[in-house]
């Protein structure tokens, strides 16, 4: 979970930086789309990300099932909130499933019309045109903002949790790691959401 999660954090960071280019230079963004396209390295990368995502999802279900069994059939009659326990940390599976639903919409809106289309021998759609059409639509923009909020929730817990899982947390770095996780997840989300807002409201 931690290793596949870490790889996806790097992918998201890379994705967010690429998307940000579209605000500053349309031609620059088109060049990135063309550079990736259906070239072998982009296809290998896509397969790699899909494999990591599948591993992450399968492990999430296996571990959640094991945890459910460990809790047993008798449940507490009263459950109170404990200090320092975030809602996101207790609901990572549900948040993750919402992220997957949003991902399906995102793949249809962009990947299917770009890389997949090119792999099928058709002319791929223009990346910048797709951005303008998708985020120019209020319904899609609202869906993306909600989706990105859930991505933020997933990342805000996931990044610090992966550091804990691989054993990089310690007494000195505990608060720093939590802060880095929050800043990094906010940064990734803000970069992604700024593109939605730019083409929805400002553009």
């Amino acid at each position: 979970m931690a290793v596949s999660g870490a790889a996806m954090v790097f992918f998201l960071l890379f994705h967010a930086l690429m998307n940000l280019v579209s605000i500053f230079s349309e031609s620059g963004y088109e060049a990135i789309c063309e550079f990736l396209g259906a070239n072998w390295y982009a296809v290998v990368g896509t397969i790699g990300i899909a494999a990591l995502m599948s591993i992450h999802l399968v492990f999430a279900f296996i571990l959640s099932w094991q945890n459910y069994k460990s809790r047993g059939s008798d449940r507490y009659a009263v459950v109170a909130k404990n200090e320092g326990v975030t809602w996101a940390s207790r609901n990572m599976l549900v948040i993750g499933l919402i992220v997957i639903i949003g991902l399906a919409l995102h793949l249809y809106n962009f990947w299917y019309k770009m890389q997949w289309s090119e792999l099928c021998g058709n002319e791929p759609a223009s990346g910048i045109q797709l951005i303008k059409e998708t985020f120019g639509n209020t319904f899609f923009s609202c869906c993306y903002i909600v989706w990105l909020f859930f991505i933020y929730l997933h990342l805000s817990h996931g990044i610090s949790s992966l550091m804990q899982s691989i054993g990089w947390n310690n007494e000195v770095w505990e608060k720093r790691i939590t802060a880095i996780a929050k800043v990094l997840s906010a940064l990734i989300t803000l970069m992604l959401v700024s593109v939605v807002f730019y083409y929805w409201i400002i553009y």
Binding site: L63, Q66, S70, V85, T86, S89, H157, Q164, S165
Partner: peptide, 10 residues
């Protein structure tokens, strides 16, 4: 049969 840690910190 103990469960896995999901780092909720409860």
């Amino acid at each position: 049969g103990f469960g896995n840690c999901s780092d909720t910190r409860a």
